[in-house]
Design a protein around this nucleic acid. Sequence first.
DNA 1: TTAAAACGTTACATGTTTGTTATTTTTAAT
DNA 2: ATTAAAAATAACAAACATGTAACGTTTTAA
Lengths: 226, 226
Amino acid sequence: MAQKSNILVVDDEDTICEVLKLNLELAGYNVDTANSAEAAMKMQLSDYDLFIIDVMMGEMNGFDFASKIRSTEALKDVPIIICTAKDSEDDLIDGFSRGVDDYIKKPFSIRELIARIKSLLRRTKFESNEVFLTYQTLMVDIEKKSCSIDGEEVLLTKKEFEILKLFLQNRGRIFSREEILDKVWENDVLVIDRTIDVNINRLRKKLKQYGNNIITKLGYGYGFKD
Amino acid sequence: MAQKSNILVVDDEDTICEVLKLNLELAGYNVDTANSAEAAMKMQLSDYDLFIIDVMMGEMNGFDFASKIRSTEALKDVPIIICTAKDSEDDLIDGFSRGVDDYIKKPFSIRELIARIKSLLRRTKFESNEVFLTYQTLMVDIEKKSCSIDGEEVLLTKKEFEILKLFLQNRGRIFSREEILDKVWENDVLVIDRTIDVNINRLRKKLKQYGNNIITKLGYGYGFKD
DNA sequence: TTAAAACGTTACATGTTTGTTATTTTTAAT
DNA sequence: ATTAAAAATAACAAACATGTAACGTTTTAA
């Protein structure tokens, strides 16, 4: 049963709240609003799948509120988008270092906001807490960082392991090279596309009989055959 | 979650059922229970968002019941948590290979169980119906970037796939060549109108029986017949 | 400090996709 | 039915994406 995602908008301007509520509901989300961090704190925050928070508000600013969310065990993985009129780089870095997932400047386009929301909600989907990923006799132990085929260990490098993990956690799904970079490489590392191809091929060789379960979708990227 | 998720607990021990029902309802879920797989089969299974199933029960064991759920089209994406006293690795592998999503050993902590439930519900919740576009036996899987007819894969090139996606997402609507260019081709690429005709025709051929669902509106463009 | 492993990059071969042109067929209006 | 415009199709050429081997650089471990 596919349910709508719930979003909480925290902004002291009623207009912004209303505009966001209207538009995001049109985009298929359930939206609640709060006029201050203090008001939001009184709500059942675990009801929400994503927070959109204004930086400048009354007593508690948006970053402080974001920190509060991040330090709550049950909420620590819920994506947060900070929106602000400020655009100094300091703010941005500060926001990210406190665990904010995205950052959008006022005035912003609703389209862009929705795109970012989609992306963040999708990203949380990738995180799975399964310790063992298996496909036939191929086994991956996330905790041990080890992989085996027919019970025999297959030594994978970190990159190879992370790619395989990503693929097995989302079997069948095709990842673009950009997506693979996002998930497997460190955020800011800049490597060229060929790098992924080469790593994919190294992985394929090591996976022996399962090598060609890694499929190439021309023009799109790579994935693991269901 | 604004809307409560429905959970079905299937366990032959009444005590376990009651404890789980009590605790999970406290955690904000609607919980029903059944004392056997057979009893559960008589219930309206599509009402549930998640199943918690004991391995050892009367005639039909938990894994068999899980398999039944997985092989039902309407239920195949509903998360299943198997709980058991057994902990041999064989059981575990067996469970995963049959599509069980998570596995928890008795005695288990309610906190841990709730954490796993949350994670599983979050994961499936965003698998929005947009991922699959269908028309009769024609299926398009946006994530897999794949298309099938009568269950058999039809290999489409990127352009063909994107055109089909556009059409199925807007069934009945006629797109001018310019619109198709805007949506399917990169922003600034300059190609002539005939190019679209050619790609439309390549797509038509590959879509076999559905080929002439792609209609030509003379003087306007193309679309997908409702 | 050295050696090995991991990782990134380059260059080229190969196969696929895509665009264009030219020609035939279909359509709609007279 | 005739005709002109629009679209379908086939064939070819150009562009593009990918696989792979070889080499260079960085990191890790001894």
